[in-house]
Structure formats: C-alpha cells, structure tokens
C-alpha cells in the first residue's frame, strides 16, 4: 500500500454522523418548504371549499335577485303601458265621437241655411 492509497483510505473511512443530524436535516427541509412570511399588514385569503360555496351561493342569489327585480319592473311597465294604451283608445274614441257630433251639427246648420236660402 503506497502513500496515496493510505490517504484515500483515510479519507473514505466510515464514520458516524454527529448527534441529532437526522433531526437537523428534517428541520432544515421543513424550513425551506415553508411559505415566505407576509409583510406586516397584509392578509392571505385561503379559498377553502366551504367559503367558495358561500361565495357562489351569494353570486347566484344576487343574480336571481337582480333578474327577479328586472322581471318585476318589466311586468309593472307592461301593466302601465297596457293601461295607458286602453286610456289612449278611450280618449281617441271619445274625441272621435265628439268631433263627429260637432261635424253633424255644423252640417245640420249648413243644411238649414241652404234651405232658408232656397225658400227666400
């Protein structure tokens, strides 16, 4: 065995790890896997399944409420419009009837005047 071989054997000799080595390695790994710390004043929102369900439910409720209100509003507007339409028709019918009466009276007067003229 020459000198080189002796040095190599010495360097590669079996030796036991220092005490608590395994625990320190595991602790180091755990520390590296930890998420970075938040800045002061900031909060992390963790979207867990229950909170996600509540959020979805709230959105659905909001959409249903808005749509319901729109439908109700539309129905009210339709009812108002139909009532207004009925009133328009009544008003135009009355106007037409009264104008016809006026026209008939004017004709009657004109006919009376014509007859008077012929008689004279």
């Amino acid at each position: 065995m020459n000198d080189v071989e002796r040095q190599l054997k010495h360097a590669l000799r079996r030796c036991d790890p220092p005490a608590n080595f395994a625990n320190r390695v595991l602790a180091r790994v755990a520390a590296e896997n930890e998420e970075p710390a938040l800045r002061p004043g900031t909060h992390r929102f963790r979207l867990s399944w229950p909170s996600l369900r509540w959020a979805v439910a709230a959105i659905v409720l909001l959409i249903v409420t808005v749509m319901g209100y729109r439908i109700h509003e539309r129905r009210v507007e339709e009812a108002q419009a139909l009532a207004a339409k009925r009133q328009v028709m009544i008003a135009l019918r009355i106007t037409g009837a009264k104008l016809r009466i006026a026209k008939q009276r004017v004709r009657a007067v004109e006919e009376g005047q014509e007859k008077t003229g012929k008689t004279l």
Binding site: E77, A81, L82, K85, Q87, V88, I90, A91, I94
Partner: peptide, 18 residues
C-alpha cells in the same frame, strides 16, 4: 265619469305596446 290623463311619457309607453 271618464277621466284620462296621459302625459308624453305615458303616451310613449303606450305606443311601445301598440
């Protein structure tokens, strides 16, 4: 009694449904 009061807004609304 017949009472009809329709302003411009109501007339436009009625026109939409005619």
């Amino acid at each position: 009694t017949t009472e009809v009061t329709l302003n411009g807004h109501m007339l436009q609304l009625a026109a939409k449904f005619m």
